[in-house]
Protein backbone atom coordinates (compact mmCIF):
# COMPACT_ATOMS: atom_id res chain seq x y z
CA UNK A 1 0.00 0.00 0.00
CA UNK A 2 2.88 2.33 0.88
CA UNK A 3 4.28 1.56 -2.60
CA UNK A 4 1.03 2.65 -4.28
CA UNK A 5 0.58 5.71 -2.07
CA UNK A 6 4.07 6.86 -3.03
CA UNK A 7 3.28 6.24 -6.69
CA UNK A 8 0.12 8.33 -6.41
CA UNK A 9 1.96 11.25 -4.82
CA UNK A 10 4.66 10.85 -7.44
CA UNK A 11 2.14 10.98 -10.27
CA UNK A 12 0.79 14.33 -8.98
CA UNK A 13 4.30 15.78 -8.84
CA UNK A 14 5.11 14.07 -12.14
CA UNK A 15 2.09 15.67 -13.82
CA UNK A 16 3.71 19.07 -13.26
CA UNK A 17 7.05 17.77 -14.60
CA UNK A 18 5.16 16.32 -17.57
CA UNK A 19 3.60 19.70 -18.30
CA UNK A 20 6.94 21.51 -18.06
CA UNK A 21 8.71 18.88 -20.18
CA UNK A 22 5.93 18.96 -22.79
CA UNK A 23 6.09 22.74 -22.99
CA UNK A 24 9.87 22.61 -23.49
CA UNK A 25 9.40 19.89 -26.07
CA UNK A 26 6.83 21.95 -28.00
CA UNK A 27 9.33 24.80 -28.36
CA UNK A 28 12.13 22.39 -29.26
CA UNK A 29 10.09 20.50 -31.87
CA UNK A 30 8.70 23.68 -33.43
CA UNK A 31 11.88 25.74 -33.55
CA UNK A 32 14.78 23.30 -32.79
CA UNK A 33 15.74 25.61 -29.91
CA UNK A 34 16.23 24.10 -26.46
CA UNK A 35 15.08 26.85 -24.11
CA UNK A 36 17.55 26.81 -21.23
CA UNK A 37 15.58 29.66 -19.68
CA UNK A 38 12.30 27.74 -19.66
CA UNK A 39 12.33 27.11 -15.91
CA UNK A 40 12.31 30.84 -15.31
CA UNK A 41 9.17 31.20 -17.44
CA UNK A 42 7.54 28.65 -15.11
CA UNK A 43 8.76 30.76 -12.17
CA UNK A 44 7.43 33.91 -13.84
CA UNK A 45 4.00 32.27 -14.24
CA UNK A 46 3.96 31.43 -10.52
CA UNK A 47 5.06 34.95 -9.53
CA UNK A 48 2.47 36.68 -11.73
CA UNK A 49 -0.24 34.61 -10.03
CA UNK A 50 1.20 35.53 -6.63
CA UNK A 51 1.20 39.23 -7.55
CA UNK A 52 -2.37 39.17 -8.80
CA UNK A 53 -3.79 37.07 -5.96
CA UNK A 54 -1.87 38.43 -2.97
CA UNK A 55 -1.08 42.00 -3.97
CA UNK A 56 -3.91 42.87 -6.36
CA UNK A 57 -6.50 40.77 -4.53
CA UNK A 58 -7.89 39.13 -7.68
CA UNK A 59 -9.51 35.68 -7.48
CA UNK A 60 -7.24 32.73 -8.32
CA UNK A 61 -8.96 31.61 -11.59
CA UNK A 62 -8.82 35.13 -13.09
CA UNK A 63 -5.20 35.53 -11.97
CA UNK A 64 -4.30 32.15 -13.49
CA UNK A 65 -5.80 33.07 -16.86
CA UNK A 66 -4.08 36.48 -16.81
CA UNK A 67 -0.71 34.89 -15.93
CA UNK A 68 -0.96 32.33 -18.72
CA UNK A 69 -1.97 35.02 -21.25
CA UNK A 70 0.85 37.28 -20.13
CA UNK A 71 3.41 34.49 -20.41
CA UNK A 72 2.11 33.63 -23.90
CA UNK A 73 2.84 37.20 -24.94
CA UNK A 74 6.24 37.15 -23.22
CA UNK A 75 7.20 33.87 -24.91
CA UNK A 76 6.18 35.15 -28.34
CA UNK A 77 8.06 38.42 -27.79
CA UNK A 78 11.24 36.57 -26.75
CA UNK A 79 11.14 34.58 -29.98
CA UNK A 80 10.23 37.41 -32.32
CA UNK A 81 12.42 40.04 -30.66
CA UNK A 82 15.49 38.01 -29.71
CA UNK A 83 15.67 34.45 -31.04
CA UNK A 84 14.53 35.21 -34.60
CA UNK A 85 17.19 37.90 -34.91
CA UNK A 86 20.03 35.45 -34.32
CA UNK A 87 18.62 32.66 -36.53
CA UNK A 88 21.46 32.95 -39.02
CA UNK A 89 24.11 32.66 -36.29
CA UNK A 90 25.57 29.57 -34.62
CA UNK A 91 23.24 27.35 -32.57
CA UNK A 92 25.14 28.09 -29.34
CA UNK A 93 23.80 31.65 -29.65
CA UNK A 94 20.26 30.35 -28.99
CA UNK A 95 21.40 28.58 -25.83
CA UNK A 96 23.21 31.65 -24.53
CA UNK A 97 20.30 33.94 -25.37
CA UNK A 98 17.85 31.63 -23.57
CA UNK A 99 20.09 31.40 -20.49
CA UNK A 100 20.50 35.20 -20.45
CA UNK A 101 16.75 35.82 -20.73
CA UNK A 102 16.08 33.25 -17.98
CA UNK A 103 18.62 34.84 -15.64
CA UNK A 104 17.23 38.27 -16.47
CA UNK A 105 13.76 37.16 -15.31
CA UNK A 106 15.27 35.56 -12.22
CA UNK A 107 17.34 38.70 -11.54
CA UNK A 108 14.28 40.91 -11.93
CA UNK A 109 12.40 38.79 -9.37
CA UNK A 110 15.42 38.93 -7.02
CA UNK A 111 15.66 42.71 -7.43
CA UNK A 112 12.13 43.02 -6.05
CA UNK A 113 11.94 40.22 -3.49
CA UNK A 114 15.61 39.47 -2.75
CA UNK A 115 16.03 35.98 -1.35
CA UNK A 116 12.70 36.16 0.38
CA UNK A 117 10.49 33.08 0.36
CA UNK A 118 6.89 33.97 -0.38
CA UNK A 119 3.95 31.90 0.88
CA UNK A 120 0.71 32.00 -1.06
CA UNK A 121 -2.65 31.29 0.58
CA UNK A 122 -4.08 27.84 -0.10
CA UNK A 123 -6.43 27.75 -3.06
CA UNK A 124 -7.41 24.11 -3.43
CA UNK A 125 -8.81 23.76 0.06
CA UNK A 126 -11.16 20.79 0.21
CA UNK A 127 -10.92 17.44 1.99
CA UNK A 128 -8.89 14.60 0.47
CA UNK A 129 -10.62 11.81 -1.44
CA UNK A 130 -10.15 8.19 -0.35
CA UNK A 131 -9.58 5.51 -2.99
CA UNK A 132 -9.83 2.43 -0.78
CA UNK A 133 -6.91 2.95 1.56
CA UNK A 134 -5.19 5.40 -0.76
CA UNK A 135 -5.40 9.11 0.01
CA UNK A 136 -5.73 11.55 -2.91
CA UNK A 137 -5.14 15.08 -1.65
CA UNK A 138 -7.05 18.08 -2.95
CA UNK A 139 -3.84 19.43 -4.51
CA UNK A 140 -3.18 16.16 -6.32
CA UNK A 141 -6.76 16.02 -7.56
CA UNK A 142 -6.62 19.55 -8.98
CA UNK A 143 -3.27 18.91 -10.63
CA UNK A 144 -4.42 15.58 -12.14
CA UNK A 145 -7.59 17.15 -13.51
CA UNK A 146 -5.97 20.33 -14.83
CA UNK A 147 -3.00 18.56 -16.45
CA UNK A 148 -5.22 15.76 -17.76
CA UNK A 149 -7.62 18.18 -19.47
CA UNK A 150 -4.73 20.24 -20.82
CA UNK A 151 -2.94 17.20 -22.25
CA UNK A 152 -6.14 15.95 -23.90
CA UNK A 153 -6.72 19.38 -25.42
CA UNK A 154 -3.14 19.67 -26.61
CA UNK A 155 -2.84 16.20 -28.15
CA UNK A 156 -6.35 16.47 -29.63
CA UNK A 157 -5.39 19.74 -31.27
CA UNK A 158 -1.98 18.51 -32.40
CA UNK A 159 -3.04 15.19 -33.93
CA UNK A 160 -6.69 15.67 -34.86
CA UNK A 161 -7.15 19.16 -36.33
CA UNK A 162 -5.96 20.96 -39.43
CA UNK A 163 -4.21 23.53 -37.19
CA UNK A 164 -2.37 20.62 -35.58
CA UNK A 165 -1.44 19.29 -39.02
CA UNK A 166 0.16 22.65 -39.78
CA UNK A 167 2.04 22.50 -36.44
CA UNK A 168 3.31 19.02 -37.26
CA UNK A 169 4.28 20.13 -40.76
CA UNK A 170 6.48 23.01 -39.57
CA UNK A 171 8.06 20.75 -36.95
CA UNK A 172 8.99 18.28 -39.69
CA UNK A 173 10.20 20.61 -42.45
CA UNK A 174 10.41 24.39 -42.21
CA UNK A 175 11.17 24.81 -45.88
CA UNK A 176 8.36 22.42 -46.75
CA UNK A 177 6.02 24.55 -44.63
CA UNK A 178 7.11 27.74 -46.40
CA UNK A 179 6.65 25.94 -49.75
CA UNK A 180 2.95 25.42 -48.96
CA UNK A 181 2.47 29.03 -47.86
CA UNK A 182 2.87 28.82 -44.07
CA UNK A 183 4.42 31.88 -42.42
CA UNK A 184 7.13 30.01 -40.52
CA UNK A 185 8.44 33.09 -38.65
CA UNK A 186 5.01 33.92 -37.25
CA UNK A 187 4.52 30.25 -36.40
CA UNK A 188 7.75 30.21 -34.37
CA UNK A 189 6.52 33.20 -32.36
CA UNK A 190 3.19 31.53 -31.68
CA UNK A 191 4.81 28.25 -30.62
CA UNK A 192 7.16 30.03 -28.20
CA UNK A 193 4.05 31.69 -26.81
CA UNK A 194 2.31 28.32 -26.50
CA UNK A 195 5.38 26.78 -24.82
CA UNK A 196 5.72 29.67 -22.35
CA UNK A 197 1.99 29.60 -21.58
CA UNK A 198 2.04 25.84 -20.94
CA UNK A 199 5.09 26.23 -18.72
CA UNK A 200 3.29 29.05 -16.91
CA UNK A 201 0.35 26.75 -16.23
CA UNK A 202 2.83 24.49 -14.41
CA UNK A 203 3.92 27.52 -12.37
CA UNK A 204 0.34 28.57 -11.72
CA UNK A 205 -0.54 25.09 -10.43
CA UNK A 206 2.42 24.84 -8.07
CA UNK A 207 2.21 28.45 -6.83
CA UNK A 208 -0.40 27.71 -4.12
CA UNK A 209 1.37 24.48 -3.08
CA UNK A 210 4.92 25.64 -2.61
CA UNK A 211 6.94 28.49 -1.23
CA UNK A 212 7.82 30.89 -4.03
CA UNK A 213 11.33 32.19 -4.56
CA UNK A 214 13.13 33.60 -7.62
CA UNK A 215 15.28 30.47 -8.02
CA UNK A 216 12.20 28.26 -8.34
CA UNK A 217 12.68 27.76 -12.08
CA UNK A 218 16.08 26.05 -11.89
CA UNK A 219 14.56 22.89 -10.41
CA UNK A 220 11.81 22.78 -13.02
CA UNK A 221 14.33 23.17 -15.83
CA UNK A 222 16.36 20.16 -14.75
CA UNK A 223 13.21 18.09 -14.06
CA UNK A 224 11.96 19.04 -17.52
CA UNK A 225 15.26 17.95 -19.08
CA UNK A 226 15.23 14.68 -17.15
CA UNK A 227 11.65 13.95 -18.24
CA UNK A 228 12.46 14.76 -21.88
CA UNK A 229 15.58 12.58 -21.78
CA UNK A 230 13.74 9.71 -20.14
CA UNK A 231 10.84 9.85 -22.59
CA UNK A 232 13.04 10.35 -25.66
CA UNK A 233 14.24 13.83 -26.59
CA UNK A 234 11.78 15.52 -28.93
CA UNK A 235 8.93 13.05 -28.36
CA UNK A 236 5.80 14.84 -27.10
CA UNK A 237 4.18 11.72 -25.64
CA UNK A 238 7.58 10.66 -24.28
CA UNK A 239 7.95 13.98 -22.43
CA UNK A 240 4.64 13.37 -20.66
CA UNK A 241 5.47 9.74 -19.81
CA UNK A 242 8.98 10.77 -18.73
CA UNK A 243 7.58 13.45 -16.42
CA UNK A 244 5.15 11.05 -14.75
CA UNK A 245 7.82 8.35 -14.35
CA UNK A 246 10.29 10.85 -12.91
CA UNK A 247 7.73 12.01 -10.34
CA UNK A 248 7.06 8.42 -9.26
CA UNK A 249 10.77 7.52 -9.26
CA UNK A 250 11.51 10.46 -6.95
CA UNK A 251 8.89 9.30 -4.45
CA UNK A 252 10.06 5.69 -4.50
CA UNK A 253 13.68 6.71 -4.08
CA UNK A 254 12.63 9.02 -1.23
CA UNK A 255 10.38 6.41 0.38
CA UNK A 256 12.61 3.33 0.12
CA UNK A 257 16.16 4.71 -0.01
CA UNK A 258 16.47 8.19 1.47
CA UNK A 259 14.55 11.46 1.17
CA UNK A 260 17.94 13.12 0.72
CA UNK A 261 18.17 11.48 -2.70
CA UNK A 262 14.92 12.95 -4.07
CA UNK A 263 16.66 16.06 -5.35
CA UNK A 264 19.34 14.16 -7.22
CA UNK A 265 17.00 11.60 -8.82
CA UNK A 266 16.59 13.81 -11.92
CA UNK A 267 20.37 14.04 -12.42
CA UNK A 268 20.73 10.27 -11.99
CA UNK A 269 17.95 9.70 -14.53
CA UNK A 270 19.66 11.93 -17.11
CA UNK A 271 23.02 10.21 -16.62
CA UNK A 272 21.62 6.67 -16.66
CA UNK A 273 19.34 7.18 -19.65
CA UNK A 274 22.04 8.89 -21.73
CA UNK A 275 24.56 6.18 -20.84
CA UNK A 276 22.29 3.18 -21.36
CA UNK A 277 19.63 4.21 -23.85
CA UNK A 278 20.32 7.66 -25.34
CA UNK A 279 17.11 7.61 -27.39
CA UNK A 280 15.07 7.36 -24.16
CA UNK A 281 12.32 4.92 -23.33
CA UNK A 282 10.02 5.88 -26.17
CA UNK A 283 12.50 7.16 -28.71
CA UNK A 284 13.14 4.91 -31.68
CA UNK A 285 15.52 4.68 -34.57
CA UNK A 286 13.86 6.19 -37.64
CA UNK A 287 13.82 4.13 -40.82
CA UNK A 288 13.67 6.11 -44.04
CA UNK A 289 13.55 4.92 -47.63
CA UNK A 290 15.61 6.79 -50.16
Amino acid sequence: MFFLQLALSGLAQGAIYALVALSMCVVYRATTVVNFGHGDLVMAGAFVVYLLVVLAGLPFPASAIAAVALLFILGALIEIGLIERIKAGPHIGFALMCIAVGYLLRGAARAVWGREVLPMPRVFDFPPVMLGELVVTADALVIFSAVGVLLMLFFGLFYRTSAGRIMQAVCQSERGAALVGINVRAFHGVMWGVGAAMGAIGGVLVAPLTLLHPGLGAGFLIKGFAAMTLGGFGSLGGAVAGGLLLGVAEQWVGGYVSTKLIDITAYLVIILVLALRPSGLFGQAVAERV
Binding site: R165, Q168, Q172, S173, R175, G176, L179, V180
Partner: peptide, 14 residues
Protein backbone atom coordinates in the same frame (compact mmCIF):
# COMPACT_ATOMS: atom_id res chain seq x y z
CA UNK B 1 3.91 30.69 -57.38
CA UNK B 2 4.70 27.25 -55.98
CA UNK B 3 8.03 25.49 -56.13
CA UNK B 4 8.84 21.79 -56.11
CA UNK B 5 12.30 21.94 -54.60
CA UNK B 6 15.18 19.65 -55.46
CA UNK B 7 15.17 18.13 -51.98
CA UNK B 8 11.33 17.89 -52.12
CA UNK B 9 10.98 19.14 -48.51
CA UNK B 10 7.98 16.94 -47.74
CA UNK B 11 6.61 16.12 -44.29
CA UNK B 12 8.11 12.68 -43.59
CA UNK B 13 5.95 11.63 -40.62
CA UNK B 14 2.62 12.63 -42.13
Amino acid sequence: VVQVSQSRDLFPDL
